[in-house]
């Protein structure tokens, strides 16, 4: 990793303090884990700092370990051709994470999908607070979050929601 990148990461360590839970370089990929409260600040730094310049929103998705949720932001730099995996772990109860749509507009729909499938609140998203606008892949009146490990499918008999009851 280049000298400006080292300097930028040092600055990030200072700025976030305990908010930066881990930071390592693994085969050219920068792996970071931050506390959810520090996410937005870390994301902004990753995009704008010299030597980092993660200007390209590669991907954003979550998974459920059974105990907690993990949210991963895969970022890429078009000028420096490097990848960062920014990771946040969330407790299941009241899981919420700050929106980064203002930093990378391309994250907008990915964030809606994370809400849609896992029920993780996206604080500050343009559609936040209105479940009918946040839902993206599922019908807007869907109940529950089907990618959670504890999700139990409910068939209502409504053709939109599952097979119709037969006699």
């Amino acid at each position: 990793m280049s000298a400006p990148a080292e300097a930028a990461l040092d600055a990030l360590r200072k700025a976030l303090g305990d908010g930066l839970q881990s930071c390592s370089l693994d085969g050219g990929t920068l792996r970071l884990q931050v506390a959810s409260a520090s996410l937005h600040q870390a994301a902004l730094h990753l995009r704008d700092a010299d030597g980092l310049r993660f200007d390209y929103p590669g991907d954003l998705f979550a998974w459920d370990t059974g105990e907690r949720f993990v949210v991963v932001y895969r970022l890429w730099s078009t000028t420096l051709s490097q990848t960062a995996l920014l990771r946040v772990e969330l407790e299941r109860e009241g899981a919420a994470v700050a929106s980064v749509t203002d930093i990378w507009p391309g994250m907008n729909w990915h964030e809606r999908e994370v809400y849609d499938l896992y029920g993780i609140e996206i604080v500050g998203h343009p559609d936040a607070g209105d479940p009918t606008r946040m839902r993206i892949l599922l019908p807007k009146d869907w109940e529950g979050f089907p990618f959670r490990k504890d999700y139990v499918p409910v068939f209502s008999g409504d053709p939109l929601h599952g097979p119709q009851e037969t006699n």
Binding site: D55, Y56, P57, T78, G106
Partner: peptide, 18 residues
């Protein structure tokens, strides 16, 4: 194109050689 995460011909049609 970059800020929205465009790729493929959409990105290259906007002058980004990736």
């Amino acid at each position: 194109a970059i800020a929205h995460g465009a790729s493929g011909p959409v990105l290259r049609g906007s002058g980004v050689n990736i």
